[in-house]
Design a protein around this nucleic acid. Structure first.
Length: 267
DNA sequence: CGCCAGGACGCCC
DNA sequence: GGGCGTCATGGC
């Protein structure tokens, strides 16, 4: 990765990176594609830092109205620019199916998201579909002027959250708020725990089962050994890996390629 | 109308 | 331990 500062923008050159692949693959829910004269442009947030970013070509990107300081302190890490995805994909591609998946959407990167936002987002995701997940999170952020902290949400009840239309998940959101505010669950500590303890700790929260815990670990804590199995990945495992899934370092990142592949390959 | 969506819980055996 | 009905909501 290399970058140059130009006016108020940061121009980034990076291979193995695509905005559509990365920002519209179901790992983050607050990025919106907007009209532009570039290949594509998205606007969205990390915590409550807004960014508008455009893809100019296969390997050129514009981070609009971004200082060098903000780029290096926030966005470099968020987009995981410190990781060599060429090398990762080379390793994954020893597997036949993963080779196809990496070829299909080679621009996917694992975003380093905020653990709290991730926890709430993936509680909302259960037995739900991506457009509706985005809608619920939109309504939450609209009310609070950004993604609310657990402290801001302290007085919410399932009834007061009715406007979200999140259905049976509202009581789970409230339990997550209570667990974090009472320090029964400490996300910063969980992020550093051995993975089995981290899983158990997250599952203290009602509405957090195996799959949601795995998503929080992978997307919100950059625990790349976490491997969420949802209905789509279950299909991949049945269809292509009846003899078991091979051992990979950073298997969670491989999971992202597979998830995107199985959902979109027939389109 | 039924089926499905980045599932988890409660209850049953 | 595994199996099954239920839980809101909205798009198709």
């Amino acid at each position: 990765m290399d970058y140059t500062v130009k006016n108020n923008n940061i121009i980034v050159h990076e291979k193995d990176f695509g905005l559509d692949d990365t920002l519209d693959c179901g790992q983050a829910f607050r990025w919106k594609k907007i009209k532009s004269d570039y290949k594509c442009t998205y606007t969205g947030f990390f915590l409550n830092n807004r960014l508008t970013v455009s893809q100019v070509s296969d390997d050129e990107f514009i981070f609009h109205d971004t200082s060098e300081k903000d780029f290096l302190e926030k966005w470099f890490n968020y987009f995981d620019f410190g990781t060599d995805y060429s090398e990762l994909k080379r390793t994954f591609s020893e597997d036949e199916t993963l080779a196809k998946a990496c070829e299909f959407a080679g621009g996917i990167r694992l975003l380093r998201q905020d653990s709290w936002e991730c926890l709430i987002s993936f509680i909302i995701s259960q037995n739900n579909n991506i457009p509706r997940i985005k809608g619920i999170i939109d309504r939450l952020c609209a009310k609070y002027g950004g993604f609310p902290s657990s402290a801001e949400l302290a007085d919410e009840t399932p009834e007061s959250l009715a406007y979200l239309r999140s259905g049976f998940r509202a009581k789970y959101i409230c339990d997550a708020i209570d667990c974090v505010n009472s320090r029964k669950v400490n996300l910063a500590e969980i992020a550093e725990m051995p993975i089995e303890y981290a899983r158990k700790s997250l599952k203290i929260i009602k509405g957090v089962g195996d799959k949601v815990a795995e998503c929080v670990l992978l997307f919100g804590m950059y625990r790349t050994e976490a491997f969420p199995v949802d209905v789509w990945i279950r299909r991949v495992l049945v269809e292509y890996y009846s003899n078991g899934f091979p051992e990979f370092q950073h298997a969670g990142i491989a999971q992202q390629y597979l998830f995107h592949y199985i959902r979109n390959k027939d389109k």
